[in-house]
Design a protein around this nucleic acid. Sequence first.
DNA 1: ATTTAGATTGTTATAATATAACACTATGTA
DNA 2: TACATAGTGTTATATTATAACAATCTAAAT
Lengths: 130, 130
Amino acid sequence: MHKEHTLTKNQQIIFDLIDKSPEPMKAYSILFNVQKKGIKAPLQVYRALDKLVEIGKIHKIESRNAFIACHNSSCQVSKATAFSICEICEKVTEISSASLSKYLANFKDKDGMKYSKYNLEFFGLCKKCR
Amino acid sequence: MHKEHTLTKNQQIIFDLIDKSPEPMKAYSILFNVQKKGIKAPLQVYRALDKLVEIGKIHKIESRNAFIACHNSSCQVSKATAFSICEICEKVTEISSASLSKYLANFKDKDGMKYSKYNLEFFGLCKKCR
DNA sequence: ATTTAGATTGTTATAATATAACACTATGTA
DNA sequence: TACATAGTGTTATATTATAACAATCTAAAT
Ligand SMILES: [Zn+2]
Ligand SMILES: [Zn+2]
Ligand SMILES: [Zn+2]
Ligand SMILES: [Zn+2]
């Protein structure tokens, strides 16, 4: 399984924080929140984030420069991600749709180019904000 | 038609530059290239970029913080965008697939949430780099 | 147990990306 | 004209992210 890496101290501290957060967290907000645990510099945060993204424990929401924990057990090591984003309250949810991921995994463009990875971000209004 | 806005001077200068570029351009690279035309500050660039994105003349490649001109006449004012990105040479192509856009435009998540906008970025290797 | 390669850490400095605030100017239209 | 809206020029600052380097930890191979 792809989620079974042993995390280092910094990685664990930062993952726990993101995992508990109900919303995506930005790097410098993470930094602020872990300073009491001895993580003092941006690089320490970014290095942990890079690794966590690489092993699929978190995802980066590109349009928001923010990070959320992966709660999608079928999500393949960050190689195929889809999110819904509310444009009012900024709530972000990871989409887990077999038909969507199947469709996208098999998508080929005109040149027959096949892709090893994709990221999809949907924007709209969530239930609350409608 | 959505592409028929009259551009202002700064918008036109910056659009022309991006439109001629074979690859996505970053904001500060744009700034550097238009300084001889009197655009001196980042904000002047970002304001033009914001407007050009809004009216659908250009798109932002979120994973690269870069901008490309839209060459897709059926692309609806930046509300539904898809790109292929080569992870080696960084070549970016706007994908224009009727079946893909139809599939995504009609996609509904489990809550029946319907989206007003999406952005999809595929990653892989282009023909040359394979 | 010792060696060694690779990953991770701590640190300082700096680069790259993006926005706030404010005064001013152009443009269309009532 | 006069009014509203959008765009401009400018300075300053905020936010996001990486470079460089020395030190330390970890796991596996001798
Ligand atoms: Zn996931
Ligand atoms: Zn909402
Ligand atoms: Zn387009
Ligand atoms: Zn390529």
